[in-house]
Design a protein around this nucleic acid. Sequence first.
RNA 1: GCCGGGAUGGUGUAAUCGGUAGCCACGCAAGACUUAAAAUUUUGUGGGCGCAAGCCCGUGCGGGUUCAAGUCCCGCUCCCGGCACCA
Length: 948
Amino acid sequence: MHKKFDSTQIEKKWQERWKESGIYTVGERDVTKPKEYVLVEWPYPSGNLHIGHWYAFAVPDIYARFKRMKGTQVLFPMGFDAFGLPAENAAIKRNLDPKAWTNDNIAYMREQLISMGCSFSWDKTANSTDADYYKWTQWMFTQFFERGIAYRGKGVVNWCPGCNTVIANEQVLTDGTCERSGDVVEKREMPQWMLKITEYADRLTDDLNALDWPEHIKEAQRQWIGRSRGAKIDFKLSTGDTVTVFTTRPDTLFGATYVVLAPEHPLLQNDKVRGETSNLTEVNNYITTAKQKDEQDRLDATKEKTGVKLEGITAINPASGEAIPVYVADYVLGGYGTGAIMAVPAHDERDYAFATKFGLPIKQVVVPCANDSKNPPQSGYEEVKRDTVIIHLRDKSTGKFALLNWHGTLEGITTAIMGGIEEGQTPEEAALAEIKEEAALDNVKIVHSLKWITAAKYCASHKKQNRCAHTYTFLGEVENLEQQGSIPEAENSLHTLVWVEKTQVLAKLTPDHQKQVWELLQKDTVLTGAGYLMNSGEFNGMDSDEAKEKIVAQVGGEMTSTYRIRDWSIGRQRYWGVPIPIVYSPEGVAHIVPKEHLPWVLPEDVDFKPTGVAPLAKSEALRKRTEEIFGVGWTPEVETMDTFVDSSWYFLRYLDNANPDSLSSLEAQKNWMPIDIYFGGAEHTTMHLLYSRFWQKALFDLGLVTETEPYRRRINRGLILGPDGNKMSKSKGNVIDPDAQVALVGSDTVKMYLAFMGPYEGSNYPFDLGGIAGLRRFLERAYGLRDHIIPNEPLTVTKQLHKTIAKVNTDIVEFKFNTAISAMMIFVNLAEKEGLTEETYRMFTRLLAPFAPHITEEIWTELGETTSIHLTEYPTANPELARDTEVVIGVQINGKLRGDITLSPNASEAEALNMVKENPVLRTRLEGITPNKVIYVPGKIINLILPT
RNA sequence: GCCGGGAUGGUGUAAUCGGUAGCCACGCAAGACUUAAAAUUUUGUGGGCGCAAGCCCGUGCGGGUUCAAGUCCCGCUCCCGGCACCA
């Protein structure tokens, strides 16, 4: 029965009682219990909680409450990430003090957060703008500075004209706009405060492996860090200078036919190089134009390659000893690798495009091996092994490759190639005829016109598993290619036969399947994969992987890694942030502000209107303070820190938030770290999540933290969309105000609705005003269940209760709150119809408590209890009762569903067959027929195969 | 282009060690209650044929494996997210 309740009154009452009794106060670590550190990303105090905050905090609260009732000591803190631009912009607009604005917002949002009824650990809160907090932010910075992790760098930075400040690479979106303001970001050259995240790139990549994070998040971080392994190789220039290139394919060194420098490359400013360049004006013009191009243009991969040759200058290929030309071209980036490449047009598409345009030689040095991970053995396909023959051809006129790929018999292709040519037949016709005959296929065609095939015979030997190596024999011409070192070309041929290779695939090949697989592929691409070397002197025939290191060693290069990630620029030319605790001596040397002068307080006498000049430069108080402490002529650093710095360590401060002597004691960390589960938004995957991992590692190296990784698990939630399915925005008028919803249906309902929409991880869901009403109805029915209490309930109800308990217990830990709620709904539907005992009602109410903390507390009291339901133990299912004693299984006849039978899940096949025979509907179908075969899966299905 | 994740009723979703597809909720339709509406409640609700029993079709598309496929395999299409002249 539906029983209305006054959610506003009930929720207010319980929120007050919880506050009075302090039941969510964590206090000291209780070592008799296991710990669970549940972290949600701390909010920016923008002034109002939006529905996204509810999704971010209230749903994880289910998990926190569940764990607490399970007997775990749960830390579930909440705080405020309160520095940043919105406060400053609001202050500019309304002419107020950012501090006052921020503090007002925090006070208001705290009340709103309390109205959510979440079990936050308010005794473990933090606020990044408290001097007690940012004192430590500053102190850590000084420690990093002393160890070279923080440094004053120079370089091209991202300048956001909207924010009037420098921003980090991570804050620039793919379309070149600012993550915060949406303005198009400009490139500017200026000195910058940087953190050496690049020095941690390897650890940040490697340590991902051990984390229990969703693979897609790890992968996104790996890509962002962008480690690629390769080699640095020196090329001597005719000027006597050396240019170091970075390549991931040192195995193709013999195929390097020219060298390219990025327009930013320092050698281009080298006097000797400039002196010997006969077309210097042209080169200079190119460099100037390239630098003026905006980032967008330059990164457009589809545009045609441009570049200019440095006339009069050559480089020596250290492997072949050949003199090769040197170019400057903007397809090589100054900021990646060494800013210079060796170009191998035969095996790199960009080099190929450039070489074709400028008429540069293309020299193939690797024969690709087609049998790679593309066709891994599939389970279930082991039975039949078939040989595969792949014929590689190269079109002489275009330099492009063709690939004939045939899954057939080895003998077939050999015959085809060797077989006699009948009168009037072209060689390819002869080959086709043979292939068709051998493989009994008829849809065979050659898409690439073969004028001649030089090969006649090959043999294959296997060097490695799943990889083939080749010994090649060319009829009448070459006995063994490995010895020969190059591929002979047949006269009069349009194509060079590049390779014939034998591999094996594990597959069942029916004639139909063969037809599918039987494709003659025309590959219009440059072959970029690994394989075996050719045209590479002593390395011919060597596997590319092996050749990489050997060639590098031979030419005195160095195996190394390079990264996509750049150092983190943290200086901001804005007011409302942590002042960088650096002062400059009269000579302009940077010194840290020592610990006794921390916090290095943000001055208040500042005109923070954005002019492009750092506002702190205008502070008289800061200037005076600096001179008083350090001496006349000393000047303060006037930049503040990126707010991502504040959030890089807040989870440590939560643990020990009143500690005046340390950012967070090691003891507190030993008690609580690492964070067991971190709930947050997908937008932080490559920003906050990466920065804070870096920060943690840097602290670890200083002995200030106990863990190398802060977050053991991570869940990225989705977005709550407007009812129209669009992202909520004021302009679209589709914003749902959580306060209004709470006033209407109560916070329990809003929370449960958000949890019910779908799995917590991943997807975005539209907010449906009808859907939320359904959850309110559910709670009213759960509340009204009391009127269905009977002295003795049917066994079905007891069993359903225990099944529900089992389901909810497993679903919560998998963050599948939606199916947990669905299970509880099923229980209420049944209990309403059948009635339930008071004992069952109590169990159910406790089961529901983490989801609907207020109304369950109310029910608990009405049942005569005087202590909080949230201090009770979470129900555990009785496995006996949760198990089904009878199941309905489907009956299939020849694989088609024809009815069902009800029986014990343990019933034997004979019993099941009897049930089928006794079933009035099914019986008629089986009259006088003995099935050929019976497939019976207890508890699942029975399938009878009848003779046809 | 590369990497990751998806596609199931009118909607959000459920069911993946292959075993009765559509649980739960929303919406919709009809009935009850009501002067009426709201609220509540009962029934129905993937599509098609049929009075019914029942039959056929159905999880983005095309094939395949299997007694049995939303689930596995091969080949596509589209959508979402990340990266992208990264050597």
